[in-house]
């Protein structure tokens, strides 16, 4: 079998702060094949976004990064900033959470898309503008020939996110990272944007990493799901396996916290007690043990390793659940 599109090997990213070293991503490994979708799920502060920036090599100066990120056989961690610039756009790109801030307020939509096209594909301004209109049409923006000359403030949040997606896919990247692409949007618009991403992905045979805190978002749209907690992947499986055969209590707790349509009214919402751990002084054992109702002494003293239990279902837990235990 040929090498996967993306291989992340033991990626660690920490930030030097006044209080100490924050281990935002703490030894993450996974692979992603061409055209596949990986959902990365976790609470705020679980390291999802730092992981995406570590893959893009877009880290602030106070970040300490180690590990290996290989994209199409090239080690991104060993590349110069100049070589990386040539890759960002045509090989790998990203859609950010908040389209209100990820577009430049003083540039027209067309200029922002066209900039990428002229830089990476060497298009003339005229050709770039024509292509921008096509791209805007393909992401479902109404009146693309009018919108292309408008500024971001003239567009709604959903439209702006469509523009951000158009920019991200402009150079046909092999890998698209969507970092909570729907968090800042209306519920009704969320589904449209997710469908748009799925359609673009299928049409262009892109691989996608869909980062979200919403289990409901990954359910129907990802081939595989990785659950992150305190900077580590704690469970990873095909979407079907993860939902049907949940092993890690944290994943189970996340699933249980989704309100169900057939619940009786006024039923108390399941919440996970406690708060995510301090990433400067993480717990000695399993990071989830302080909040886990199954935790015992072993869980509190030794961190479990991420192990493959067959069919690519990986989880890090000393007391894995079986479906009976969950019920």
């Amino acid at each position: 079998m040929s090498e996967p599109l993306l291989t992340v090997e033991n990626q660690r990213t920490a930030f030097a702060t006044g209080r100490g070293l924050v281990r935002a991503v703490d030894g993450v490994s996974f692979t992603l094949e061409r055209g596949r979708t990986l959902g990365v799920v976790g609470e705020s502060g679980s390291g999802k976004s730092v992981l995406s920036r570590s893959i893009m090599r877009l880290l602030p100066p106070n970040a300490r990064s180690s590990g290996e990120v290989r994209l199409g056989g090239r080690d991104l961690t060993a590349m110069s900033e100049k070589a990386l610039r040539a890759l960002r756009g045509p090989e790998i790109s990203i859609v950010f959470q908040d389209p209100m801030t990820s577009l430049n307020p003083v540039m027209t939509i067309g200029a922002q898309i066209g900039e990428v096209l002229t830089r990476h594909l060497g298009m003339s301004r005229k050709a770039a503008k024509a292509r921008s209109v096509e791209l805007l049409a393909s992401v479902g923006l109404p009146q693309p020939d009018v919108r292309v000359d408008q500024h971001p403030h003239q567009l709604s949040g959903g439209m702006r996110q469509r523009v951000a997606i158009a920019i991200a896919i402009a150079c046909e990247p092999a890998l698209l990272i969507a970092d909570e692409p729907t968090t800042a949007l209306d519920v009704t618009v969320q589904a449209e944007i997710l469908d748009l991403l799925a359609r673009q992905q299928a049409e262009r045979n892109m691989a996608m990493i869909l980062i979200t805190h919403d289990m409901g978002v990954v359910a129907g749209r990802c081939d595989d799901v990785a659950v992150m907690y305190a900077g580590r992947i704690v469970e990873q499986a095909s979407t079907e396996d993860l939902f049907r055969d949940t092993r890690m209590p944290y994943t189970s707790a996340l699933l249980a916290s989704i309100p169900r349509l057939d619940d009786p009214p006024h039923r108390k919402l399941e919440a996970i007690a406690g708060r995510p751990p301090d990433l400067i002084h993480p717990p000695a054992g399993c990071a989830f043990s302080p909040r886990c109702r199954y935790a015992d002494d072993l869980c509190r003293s030794q961190p479990p390793a991420l192990e493959d239990a067959g069919r690519g279902h990986r989880f890090a837990c000393w007391r894995p659940m079986t479906m009976e235990a969950a019920e």
């Binding site: 960002r88 790109s93 990820s102 900039e115 991200a168």
Partner: peptide
């Protein structure tokens, strides 16, 4: 974020 976005596009 748009500065980060620009960096992300090379």
């Amino acid at each position: 974020e748009f500065v980060l976005a620009a960096r992300a596009m090379g």
